[in-house]
Design a protein around this nucleic acid. Structure first.
Length: 193
DNA sequence: ATAGAGATTGCCT
DNA sequence: GGCAATCTCTATA
């Protein structure tokens, strides 16, 4: 039995495998673009901390959709957080983008993050980068591979493993021991080096 | 129906 | 360092 080929083969693996592969890639949003410097993997049935763990809901249906699509959810009822759907379709896996380094701090980004004091506070957190790049709930479910999407992903070459740090995830209580947070060693935009 | 936790952030003391 | 803001989902009645 062959299953349908993924439209984006390099993302068609377990989130914990795909996550480090996304480091160094460019995320484009309405306000500008940023280089991904920190991510976290969320699995499905193997990961109690994942939104996909308990099956499809109105909020999480995108996670069970095609690989390479954007999953945006509202965190604490306030902040948008952006994820890349990975893994075989219908499994409910995704990679949370936790921090980006802006390629250029555009006027739109500055306006969206006008209260920051330190430069890195523009986008060194999952809610912050969404606000900076202009990613909102309404972008949930769009195809990151399409060139004309409001939010899209430009895959870069895989980084040297020596540049990547793997450690535990932040802000969760379940499955907190899994080393599924990945960031670029020495990058100042990482939220918690 | 109601209560409580949650992949966060920013302002307060 | 503490805590409010405020949406979604789950558990309990």
């Amino acid at each position: 039995m062959a299953r349908a080929l993924s439209s984006w083969p390099s993302l068609d693996g377990h989130a914990s495998v795909v996550a480090p592969r996304l480091l160094g890639s460019i995320l484009h949003g309405p306000n500008g673009a940023g280089r991904i410097v920190e991510v976290e993997a969320y699995g499905s049935t193997d990961d109690p901390a994942s939104h996909g763990h308990k099956g499809v809901t109105e909020r999480t249906k995108t996670v069970f959709g095609p690989t390479g699509f954007l999953y945006v959810y509202l965190s604490y009822g306030i902040h948008s957080c952006a994820n890349v759907v990975t893994g075989p379709q219908d499994e409910g896996q995704a990679v949370l983008i936790r921090a980006v380094e802006p390629l250029e701090v555009t006027p739109e980004i500055t306006a969206a993050r006008s209260r920051v004091k330190r430069q890195v506070d523009i986008s060194n957190g999952p809610g912050k980068l969404c606000q900076a790049l202009g990613i909102e709930l309404g972008h949930d479910g769009i195809d990151l591979q399409q060139q004309d999407s409001a939010v899209r992903l430009e895959l870069g070459d895989p980084l040297d493993p020596a540049e990547i740090v793997a450690t535990t995830r932040i802000g969760i209580s379940k499955a907190a021991e899994k080393p599924w947070r990945f960031y670029i060693l020495g990058n100042p935009w990482v939220s918690k080096p």
